[in-house]
């Protein structure tokens, strides 16, 4: 059995090692050595691994060196200072983290940033600004499609994407005829938006906002 005194140096050594490696690479304080290291508790753990990725975010080319574990969500929020995309459940259940990648909406919490080499990503910041809102943003304001607003960036990214999905003929669970062109109906909107949870319950106003943008009378 090791005493506390026996264990202390190994923890200090680990920290010194990590700091030295960060100094060499200029990276944030994480070791890029890939050899396993011994933790303070004496168990062998894998050291963090670093990888590079280049992507286009809201029209701007970005290059990042990231811990391989970094989700796209965390890269956007913590490294690119784009906190509009929200972290809700962090498990793909709530949709707050929805962004548009290559024209398709996805949960940015369930994908690694390094898997998006060369991809083009649009976040809520890329859709519009307070001065020049995207029509969907304006419609959410007009129809009061939120209360607390936390789920709203994800709702709006999803809403923009579902109209494109319907337009390009992608069917849904609510489509009666699989082979027909789907229409923008309340049932279609509700089904397609089911991956975006709103705890304030603004759903009916969200449906109104999307319906208006689709060109139908809300």
């Amino acid at each position: 059995m090791g005493t506390l005194r026996d264990l202390a140096p190994s923890r200090r050594d680990l920290l010194i090692g990590a700091a030295a490696s960060a100094a060499v690479t200029g990276a944030p304080p994480l070791a890029n050595a890939q050899a396993p290291v011994t933790s303070a508790q004496g168990t062998v753990v894998q050291a963090p691994s670093v990888s590079k990725v280049s992507m286009t975010v809201n029209g701007m080319a970005r290059e990042l060196e990231l811990d391989t574990r970094t989700t796209l969500l965390d890269a956007l929020r913590e490294r690119l200072q784009l906190p509009g995309t929200k972290k809700g459940c962090d498990h793909g259940q709530c949709g707050a983290c929805t962004v548009i990648v290559g024209g398709r909406r996805i949960n940015s919490c369930l994908t690694l940033a390094i898997m998006h080499e060369g991809d083009s990503i649009t976040t809520i910041e890329g859709l519009g600004t307070p001065e020049k809102m995207h029509p969907m943003q304006a419609a959410f304001v007009k129809h009061d499609g939120y209360q607390c607003g936390y789920c709203t960036p994800g709702q709006i990214c999803s809403a923009v994407a579902i109209l494109k999905e319907i337009d390009s003929g992608i069917p849904s669970h609510a489509s009666n005829d699989l082979t027909a062109q789907p229409q923008v109906t309340a049932a279609e909107i509700r089904e397609r938006m089911s991956g975006n949870i709103c705890r304030c319950g603004a759903y009916s106003n969200i449906v109104d906002a999307i319906t208006e943008v689709s060109g139908r009378k809300a």
Binding site: T98, R105, I106, S158, P171, H173, S194, G195
Partner: peptide, 16 residues
Amino acid sequence: LARALLAGASGQLRNR
């Protein structure tokens, strides 16, 4: 097959 796929997950998840 199409119906089963569309009954699963959410649009975001099915895209990925």
